[in-house]
């Protein structure tokens, strides 16, 4: 039911424990994204994440609420980082608690697919030839579009 946009690393174990609480729902799904040491074209040594704070907060809150409505979640949480990140650090964590696995997994997927294209964050990779802004990927747009077609239905 909450969003955190933070500079510090994500404490995944603590996030999980807080999400499920003392009485977990029947099904819990989470996703953790980490900084990779390579992109499609080159090695990556560091990742910088720029963001638009006020808009990011609103977009992520609306996204969590939409996932909760659509999949009947009892609890959800989205955590996204900004700033300078090293390889293998956490970038993003989402969690969803539902009655059944299908809803929990689908809600996590909806949150991830949508935040990649709709939340105002921009990645810049530090590679062998300097810093490069990451271009949006067609595959991310396609994954986002699947949920958009459900919005119209």
């Amino acid at each position: 039911m909450t969003v955190s946009i933070q500079r510090e690393p994500i404490d995944v174990a603590r996030e999980y424990a807080q999400l499920v609480g003392p009485r977990p729902g029947a099904a819990v799904a989470t996703f953790t994204g980490y900084v990779r040491d390579h992109s499609d074209a080159h090695a990556v040594s560091q990742l910088e994440l720029e963001h638009y704070p006020e808009m990011a907060q609103k977009v992520l809150m609306a996204l969590g609420e939409r996932a909760a409505d659509q999949f009947g979640l009892s609890r959800w949480r989205i955590v996204h980082r900004y700033g300078l990140l090293d390889v293998a650090e956490t970038i993003v964590w989402v969690g969803a608690v539902a009655e059944h696995r299908g809803e929990a997994i689908s809600a996590s997927e909806l949150m991830m697919d949508t935040l990649k294209t709709d939340a105002p964050f921009w990645k810049r990779e530090q590679g062998p030839d300097g810093q490069v802004w990451v271009a949006s990927k067609a595959v991310d747009q396609h994954r986002r579009a699947r949920w958009r077609s459900e919005e119209k239905a």
Partner: peptide, 28 residues
């Protein structure tokens, strides 16, 4: 993005609004 919502270019802007321009988003 007009007042934190993505809009098309026909959106109406009024005094005091916040209008942001940026490339496609690449978070996650």
């Amino acid at each position: 993005a007009l007042n934190h919502k993505v809009v098309w270019t026909d959106a109406v802007v009024t005094a005091g609004d916040e209008l942001a321009f940026f490339p496609p988003m690449t978070g996650g």
